[in-house]
């Protein structure tokens, strides 16, 4: 059997794939967090809960309405996005312009309530959610076997990240969003309905988290705590990439996912802390993050 740096090649490829999958979720979630933080200056601690809601929405749509995976990919983000719009209008919008700590506390409280409620209803154990028939099985890549669903997740997340990036960098709506991130008052003085823009942005960020949740359902099972397990790492990714940097969130998500996978191969003991070690180093060397603008 061939080895690379003394490690069997299939084990290495396997961990890189797992790293890419984890990185896909890091990227999609930190992207939403970065967009929300950039414009709303809200640290959205409910992001993990919104990811969990997306997975549960898919699970419940299937269990109670017989609605399958493909439609759930569209419906779950719409449902969670709509819930987020209501949260923004009724609660978050009262906290703009004051200490960001209040937004953090509110969203943290919301996350606890949501996760507690779902644990009460469904128990802490995960509910299985099958991948759609079209995406089951494995593909022989020559050097390894890759489960088709996992390949799909990597491709889908790349498309989602690229699409979001294009929306923000290349469209008129994205120009409003970027400009309002810099100076919301002036953008509003030009006649842009900035309060509506804030609402839509929070809805979009939550919908992205929910979309990631649906993609995750067949891989990780649907459990009330699936989001809180992930969100701490995602916060580290956002800090490393630079708060508010879209491209930084995406690139850092994939890179840290793969680095974490490689650490599992070469020094497994460190694999659960490697991301936080990198975060600490980045904070020391470049406090604004790798892609952040120094202010």
């Amino acid at each position: 059997m061939s080895t690379i740096f003394g490690v069997p090649a299939p084990a290495l490829y396997g961990q890189i794939l797992i790293g890419l999958i984890n990185g896909s979720f890091y990227a999609m979630l930190s992207l939403g967090l970065a967009v929300i933080f950039g414009l709303l200056r809200i640290i959205n601690f409910a992001h993990g809960a919104q990811y969990m809601l997306g997975a549960f929405a898919a699970y419940l749509l299937l269990s109670y309405a017989g609605i399958g995976y493909w439609l759930a990919l569209v419906l779950a983000p719409l449902i969670v996005g709509a819930v987020a719009v209501v949260i923004e209008r009724t609660m978050l919008s009262r906290l703009y312009g004051i200490d960001p700590l209040y937004g953090l506390l509110l969203t943290f409280g919301l996350a606890l309530i949501l996760e507690g409620a779902f644990r009460y209803w469904f128990g802490a154990a995960g509910q299985p959610y099958a991948a759609p028939a079209q995406l089951t099985g494995a593909l022989n890549l020559g050097f390894m076997f890759m489960p088709i669903y996992r390949g799909w997740v990597v491709v889908a997340s790349l498309v989602i990240c690229l699409g979001t990036w294009l929306l923000i960098e290349k469209t008129r709506l994205g120009a409003y969003l970027r400009a309002a991130t810099e100076n919301a008052t002036l953008v509003q003085a030009f006649g842009v309905n900035v309060p509506l823009l804030l609402t839509l942005t929070y809805g979009l960020g939550a919908a992205l988290a929910a979309l990631a949740g649906v993609l995750a359902a067949p891989i990780y099972q649907v459990s009330p705590l699936m989001g809180s397990n992930l969100i701490i790492i995602v916060f580290a990714v956002v800090v490393v990439g630079g708060m508010g940097s879209i491209l930084g969130a995406i690139v850092t998500g994939y890179v840290l996912g793969v680095l974490e996978g490689l650490t599992k191969v070469f020094y497994p003991e460190a694999s659960s802390i490697v991301i936080f070690v990198i975060m600490a180093i980045v904070l020391l060397v470049r406090p604004a993050g790798l892609f952040g603008r120094e202010e």
Partner: peptide, 19 residues
């Protein structure tokens, strides 16, 4: 002046909606 750093000149020019 309020020129936006994250927008290029043409995007800055096109930013304010027509009234």
């Amino acid at each position: 002046r309020g020129i936006f750093a994250s927008l290029n000149v043409s995007e800055n020019l096109m930013l304010p909606p027509t009234v």
